[in-house]
Write a protein that binds this DNA or RNA. Structure first.
Length: 946
RNA sequence: GGGCGGUUAGCUCAGCGGUAGAGCACUACGUUGACAUCGUAGGGGUCACUGGUUCGAUCCCAGUACCGCCCA
């Protein structure tokens, strides 16, 4: 006998363990079956499960369980990524907390990396166990890690990364370059554009005078829109606005828009940077470029190519030198020649002397007074010094958009450094094409635009990181800086020997690769690439990638690029983009806001099934999910409902664990529920095939609660309590079978409670053929469709509902056993009434339900179409109340009839609307008219009585 | 500034060219041998606004307003 309710705490872990022990998560390996594969978007090895993961993995698990039951050869590939910065940060923090004197620096690279591996083995990958608590049916035996195995020198995951790097280098798609990158001064590494978050913060805009060289002057004229002069004065300076005065030291030019008439007289002349020792102030040219916006500030912009994204572009276009001012920690440089020497050299370059980028970079244009200062301290002093010179015009308070490192939270410094770049634009071409031609489809489709938008404007991808934890870049430098990219050191050495003509010592690049570089290979590296494995043949391309939209750039785009390039084939057929999980108020959940909900707490409180079903039910395409505890509670109640329905069936000796064929059922009641079940199955299957999780979940919810529990179970109670043994036998079979089938359909959504019920309803005579999760997905087609039974039961349900509603409206006490008669019914309806007399009496709480030719006097009429039902409730109501009720209904009917008649009298409607619609409206009028006649005559009768 | 999305019941949201739906909340009644984590019934909507297409628009198109998110 089943317990009163399902106990998730007690059952979930036990069931999960059994599945795992019995190898239920393994691919069937049946190569004659269609393959179905999903790679998990690898969570960070440092990660803990949050709502986004919970939703993401629930949806994957639903699909995977569904397809597994459909007989496909399913691999759900799990694993984690090594999360370069995050993991290094965790271990460094741990070192600091340990209280010893050890730090990353004191340990040195090798020992530190060992420590990270130790940490990974002991504490990493918690999220894997958390995924198991959700019920995730990943192929855990094939779990992968983007860094591979520390103990295996030939580790294949590492091999894959090396091969990709070397191949791309040899193809010219990876190159080393000095470019402006996002520099994180906290972690002292470059990071990619995607790891930078722009935020508006309060800041200032300083306006300074840049004096013209040699005290030259010009007439500065401002005009309004109509061309009237609003300001005219002689100036010996050009006004420059900046939010970052400390970067003035590295200015290479001042730029104005070519159409800006105000500055036309001084274009091509020189002006002076108003900071630094007076005797060595630098002169820089005033140039034109499309970038400056004449409407913004003074319209003139200082150009510091080495420390600003926009300036970098201007500097490149106009061949303006880019002077680097800061070190790895964003302090003003202390290296290189003196300011005096550097300024002279810079002046020579400004005057036309040729210089290489390296020579320019070597110069240190930070005056001695500012050297070694933090960038913000330097800013203060620069401002103070200019102000003291009387060259400051004004300071504005202003909201400025600043870049922050998403991990470090510090302001990112655009910095000119040597890094490795992937030619993403080139790799993007076939990746864009694959979506354009429909080889890979986004669901919902509108995300293709986001994808194109990103891909069409893609920038070189900076893949080197100045970290220790990660895939070391397989590049070695000769003494002259010559680069040798090779699979391993021996190969590099051999190349060097050929190149130099003698054995030459090389040093390996210190840097590691961006974590996403290895994640981009995930769909094929996890299946054994570069070896041509059986797994690759079976499971690549994968069927679908399930992810959130904020990850389109990180994962989707990069996996597409690498997959197509190295496999010659797209990595996934579909990309399903799911919602973000927001809090009740529609705000993003975050730790700092304190509105984050812990999915595992919800699992503890309501069970994994409840949380999973909530996600599925709310996962409508193209919309975010606002999650409230209350919804999870509601769906927990749903699982309880199912539990109790099964419990009822068990108590009534329903037979589980057998098959039924359409001809086996004779009773309309049972034929009807089978037909309803088949409809639900069709809806669930179609919805899941279309990634419409909410529709699938809704179909199941409606079927189980509103059809199976509310009606079917109520309707079989009289059968079970009755005398008809044949009917009982059939109904026991039918009910048990329908519940069995329902468990299968619901299993992908709520695997634990369904598996528990499957297991616990096992019959001694009919053993279950193994786990529910491994059963075949039912496909009924229209075999169970049964128009006759459905019409009969529709009439029964309708009749009961009408009687109940009328009782309630008339305030007939719930316990009163009243009498009712069916009037003016056709023979068919009379037959239905006779056959269903007992259930109708019980569900509608009637003392008697008879077929009569004449309406009993003093009864209340419920009319629908031809037949009507007379309720003998005289003792409970007053005729006036009933007349009022009838008037209301009559009025509504009259209104409906008039409206529809008007529609039908429109020739255009009759001529142009589809015939079935026209007929539908005519039929409606016929029915309403009949009903109206019944109600009117009932009203007349009542009037006579009262 | 560019792009995307949203506006439907008190709340959260489905839906859809052919009489407006769900869950929750609310109201009344109910402890009937599966379930009070429940049952029965009920109230509640100019489907943001303005035009257009159509026999017919909440739905399609255009515009407006407001609200989100992403990118500069």
């Amino acid at each position: 006998m089943l317990d009163q309710r399902f106990d998730p705490q007690g059952a979930e872990q036990r069931i999960y363990q059994r599945w795992e022990e019995e190898g239920c998560f393994r691919p069937s390996g049946d190569t004659s079956a269609e393959a179905y594969s999903i790679v998990i978007p690898p969570p960070n090895v440092t990660g803990v499960l949050h709502m986004g993961h919970a939703l993401n993995n629930t949806l994957q698990d639903i699909l995977v369980r569904f397809e597994r039951m459909r007989g496909k050869n399913v691999r759900w590939q799990p694993g984690t990524d090594h999360a370069g910065i995050a993991t290094q940060m965790v271990v460094e923090r741990q070192l600091a907390q340990d209280g010893g004197n050890e730090s990353r620096a004191s340990l040195g690279r090798e020992k530190f990396v060992d420590r990270v591996w130790d940490w990974k083995e002991q504490s990493g990958g918690q999220i894997i166990n958390q995924l198991k608590r959700l019920g995730a049916s990943c192929d855990w035996e094939n779990e992968r890690f983007t860094m591979g195995d520390r103990h295996d020198p030939d580790d294949q995951m590492q091999e894959a990364v090396r091969k990709v790097f070397v191949d791309l280098y040899n193809e010219g798609l990876i190159y080393r370059d000095k470019r402006l990158v996002n520099w994180d001064p906290h972690f002292q590494t470059a990071i990619s554009d995607l790891e930078v978050e722009s935020r508006d913060v309060k800041g200032h805009m300083w306006h300074f005078k840049y004096p013209l060289a040699g005290g030259e002057t010009y007439t500065y004229v401002e005009k309004d829109e109509d061309g009237n002069v609003t300001l005219e004065e002689e100036r010996d300076y050009i006004s420059i606005a900046t939010t970052r005065p400390e970067t003035m030291l590295g200015d290479g030019a001042v730029a104005v828009h070519p159409d800006d008439e105000r500055y036309a007289p001084i274009v091509g002349k020189l002006c002076e940077i108003p900071v630094g020792p007076k005797e060595h102030r630098r002169l820089i040219p005033i140039i034109t470029d499309e970038y400056p916006n004449p409407e913004f500030g003074s319209g003139a912009v200082k150009i510091t190519g080495a420390h600003d994204e926009n300036d970098y572009g201007v500097a490149q276009r106009n061949n303006i030198p880019m002077y680097r001012l800061m070190d790895d920690q964003a302090r003003m440089r202390t290296d290189g020649p003196s300011y005096e020497e550097s300024a002279k050299a810079a002046q020579a370059i400004a005057g036309g002397k040729a210089a290489t980028a390296a020579e320019v970079d070597a110069l240190n244009l930070v005056p001695e007074a500012y050297r070694g200062l933090d960038r913000y301290e330097a800013r203060k002093q620069v401002i103070a010094d200019i102000d003291a010179d009387g060259l400051m015009i004004e300071v504005e308070d202003k909201l400025i958009t600043q870049p922050f490192g998403d991990r470090s939270g510090v302001v990112i410094e655009p910095m000119l450094t040597d890094q490795w770049f992937v030619n993403a634009a080139e790799l993007a071409k076939p990746a864009i094409e694959a979506v354009r031609t429909g080889k890979t489809k986004f669901v919902p489709e509108n995300w293709t635009k986001t994808y194109y938008n990103w891909m069409d404007n893609i920038q070189p991808w900076c893949v080197s990181r100045q970290l220790w934890w990660g895939h070391r870049i397989p590049a070695w430098f000769g003494p002259d800086g010559k680069i040798f990219v090779a699979h391993d050191e021996a190969a590099a050495v051999a190349m060097a020997e050929t190149h130099y003509g003698e054995p030459t010592e090389l040093t390996q690049d210190e840097d590691v690769l961006d974590t996403w570089f290895s994640s981009a290979l995930w769909p094929f590296s996890t299946q054994g690439w570069p070896e041509e494995t059986e797994a690759l043949k079976q499971y690549y391309p994968t069927s679908v990638l399930i992810t959130a939209h904020d990850i389109i750039f990180f994962w989707v785009a990069r996996m597409m690029m690498m997959g197509i390039h190295f496999m010659g084939e797209i990595p996934f057929h579909d990309v399903y983009i799911h919602a973000l999980v927001l809090d009740e108020k529609g705000q993003k959940m975050s730790k700092s806001k304190g509105n984050a909900m812990d999915p595992l707490e919800l699992v503890d409180e309501y069970g994994a099934d409840a949380l999973r079903f909530t996600f599925a039910r709310l996962a409508a395409q193209g919309r975010n999910i606002r999650l409230a505890k209350q919804s999870v509670e509601g769906f927990r109640n749903f699982t309880t409902k199912l539990w109790n329905a099964t419990r009822f069936a068990e108590m009534n000796s329903c037979e589980f664990g057998h098959e039924l064929k359409p001809g086996d059922l004779k009773l309309p009641l049972n034929r009807w529920i089978a037909a309803e079940l088949a409809k639900a199955e069709a809806a669930v299957t179609a919805s899941l095939e279309a990634y419409k999780f909410n529709e699938a979940a809704d179909a199941l919810y409606q079927f189980i609660w509103n059809v199976l529990c509310d009606w079917y179970i109520e309707l079989i109670k009289p059968v079970m309590n009755g005398e008809d043994e044949a009917a009982k036998t059939e109904t026991r079979k039918a009910c048990g079978w329908v519940i069995d089938q329902t468990l299968k359909l619901l299993h992908p959504f709520t695997p634990f409670v369904t598996e528990a019920l499957w297991e616990q309803t096992e019959d001694a005579e009919r053993k279950r053929p193994g786990f529910l999760m491994l059963q075949d997905w039912p496909r009924y087609g229209d075999a169970w469709a049964d128009a006759e039974a459905e019409a009969e039961m529709a009439w029964v349900l309708d009749t009961v509902s009408e009687i109940r509603s009328t009782r309630s409206v008339l305030n007939v006490p719930a316990g009163a056993q009243i009498s009712a008669s069916l009037i003016d019914a056709s023979d068919k309806v009379k037959g239905w009434a006779a056959a269903n007399e007992v259930p109708i009496r019980q569900l509608a709480r009637l003392g008697s339900f008879a077929i009569a030719d004449v309406k009993p006097a003093r009864s209340v009429t419920i009319a629908s179409g031809e037949d009507s039902i007379a309720l003998e409730v005289e003792e409970f109501i007053t005729p006036a109340d009933e007349i009022a009720r009838l008037d209301k209904e009559i009025a509504k009917l009259e209104k409906d009839i008039t409206g529809t008649e008007k529609k039908l009298s429109n020739e255009n409607f009759v001529a142009k609307a589809p015939p079935e619609i026209v007929e539908e409206n005519r039929e409606r009028i016929r029915e309403w008219t009949a009903t109206l006649a019944k109600l009117s005559s009932a009203r007349e009768q009542l009037k006579d009585i009262s």
